[in-house]
Every structure is written in C-alpha cells, then in structure tokens.
C-alpha cells in the first residue's frame, strides 16, 4: 500500500509537471519577456528573488539561465516533486515497524490524509487516499516553497495550477466511468432521468452537468493560483518596502506565518474539493448520506 502510494506520488508529480510544460509552452513566452521588462523598470518587483531570477539577473544571456528563467515555475514544480520523491524514498528506505524520524512524519501525514479521505468518502473508498494525499503534499510543498528564500511557489502561476485542476478533472471523469460504467456515467451527466419530465430536461441537465464538470478544474486552479499569487505578491511588496528602508528591516515576516497558513488551507481546500468531486461521481447507493450532504453544500 505504502509502495503504491509512493508510485502514485511520483507518477502524479511528474504528470502534473508534464502538463505544466504543455500549458506553459502555450502562453509563457510573451509573458516572460514582458515580465522581465517590467522587472527591470520597477526595480523592486512583485516577485521575490529566487535562485533562477538571481541567476538571470547576473547572467541574462546565458542560454541555460535563459531556458531556466523561461521554465522557472516548471523547474520549481519539478524540484518539489523530486524533493518529495527523494524524501519519501529516504523515509521508506529504512522502514521499521516502530517508525522514527522522517518515516514517522510521513506515516503521520499519510495516516491523517487517509482519515481525511475516509471521513468524506467512507472506508470503502480509501483507495483514493494515494491520489488525494499526493495532491495535498505536492500542493502544500509548492505553496510553502514561496516562503523559503531562493525558492518560488510554482502554484503562484496559473500554468502550474491549471494542469493540477485538469488532472483532477480527468481523474474524476475516469473514476466516474470506472465506478459507474460508461452508460451510468452518461445517465449521471443527463441528470438521471426516470420520468417524462426528466427526459424532457435531458438537454438542459446535460448542458449544466457538462459545464459544471468543466468549471471544476477552472475554479480549483484559479482559486489556488489567486490565493498563492496574492500571498506571494504581498510578501514580495513588503520585502520590497523593507529593503528600501535605510536599514533593511524584514517587515514582511508576520506574513510568512500567514503564508504558512494559506499554504496549508489552500492545499486542504484543493484536496477537499477534489474528494468531494470524486464523491459526487461515485455510485449513489454507497454513501447516499454523504452524497446528499455534499449536494446541500
């Protein structure tokens, strides 16, 4: 189970980063150049210095640095994925029955995430823990990376959060087809018509459901991106203000606690909503109460 979770973690991390590559490639180029120009003009920017933009500041014409600068968010997303994979490997390497150190920490995290998923979906659906748990750890570390000097929150970029939302969307649709079967899945999208009114309303219900499904990844990714970007900008502005004082003062430090809280809350919200989307797609007869509760929200 542990090993499977680990594999899912690695797969997911790289899958997310891969999608990020694809979406970044579409719209990043122009934006990156505009950003660099704006940075040069403003002096103190809306972004904190990180290892890549520091390198870019000093070696702007080095091809490697240019490449890294262009793919900055993807680089940090991959770095976080690699960090998680590495630390999970370390934790699992000397696994003992009585856990200590890193193993203990990750086991506690896995246990809490398992309880989180079971609390919403019920023990029958704990097989979703690896997916939701990996998402949580990945997003939380990415969010928190913005607080650590020389790093950057990849989630402050829509190019990273949208693939995350998209992967949730794909996973939820895949889960729906797998758990309900293709025809029941269509029936679900058509609003489960059982009488004449239901059948008449099929076009409307289908439209609403399809739009609803497509809005989910958008709302997930925009929420995460907006919050983390806002938090990073806030910190960056205060760092900028502190650095422009005669004696540099870290007036931004209270916001680091806020960032820690936001990182945790946003990762939790993302995973909570993912779990709820999965719950909405699962067969109704299992966990009818949960389903109704979810609908009433």
């Amino acid at each position: 189970m542990k090993f499977r979770a680990f594999l899912v973690q690695i797969f997911y991390s790289f899958f997310g980063a891969g999608l990020a590559f694809a979406s970044e490639a579409a719209g990043h180029g122009a934006a990156a150049h505009g950003e660099a120009a704006a940075h040069a003009e403003e002096g103190a920017s809306m972004h904190l210095p990180n290892v890549i933009n520091i390198l870019y500041h000093y070696f702007p014409h080095q091809p490697v640095v240019e490449f890294l600068h262009e793919w900055e968010n993807v680089f940090f997303a991959l770095a976080v994925a690699a960090f998680l994979a590495w630390t999970f490997t370390l934790a699992a390497r000397r696994a003992s029955l009585v856990p200590s150190g890193l193993q203990n920490l990750y086991e506690m995290a896995a246990e809490s995430l398992d309880n989180f998923v079971i609390g919403i979906l019920g023990p029958r659906w704990r097989k979703f823990t690896p997916f939701v748990g990996s998402l949580f750890l990945y997003i939380f570390i990415m969010n928190f990376a913005g607080v650590v000097p020389f790093l950057k929150s990849p989630t402050s970029s829509f190019g990273i959060t949208f693939p995350l939302g998209l992967s949730v969307f794909l996973y939820v649709q895949f889960t729906g087809i797998r758990e309900l079967g293709f025809f029941k899945y269509l029936d679900h999208l058509a609003g489960e018509p059982r009488n004449a009114v239901g059948f008449i309303l099929i076009p409307l219900m289908l439209f609403l459901h399809v739009v609803g499904e497509f809005v989910k990844p958008l709302s997930l990714s925009l929420r995460l991106f907006g919050n983390i970007w806002g938090e990073d900008v806030l910190i960056a502005v205060f760092v900028g203000m502190g650095s422009q004082m005669p004696l540099p003062i870290p007036i931004h430090f209270p916001f680091l606690f806020l960032a820690l809280l936001t990182s945790f809350v946003q990762a939790t919200v993302f995973c909570l909503l993912t779990t709820i989307y999965i719950a909405l797609m699962l067969p109704h007869e299992h966990g009818e109460e949960g389903h109704e509760a979810v609908h009433s929200h």
Partner: peptide
C-alpha cells in the same frame, strides 16, 4: 537588499 531582508525574515 531584498535577499538580505528575505533571509532575515525567514530567519
């Protein structure tokens, strides 16, 4: 200066 402030804040 920004790096110094950021390091101090993180410290």
């Amino acid at each position: 200066r920004e790096i110094i402030v950021q390091l101090a804040g993180f410290g």
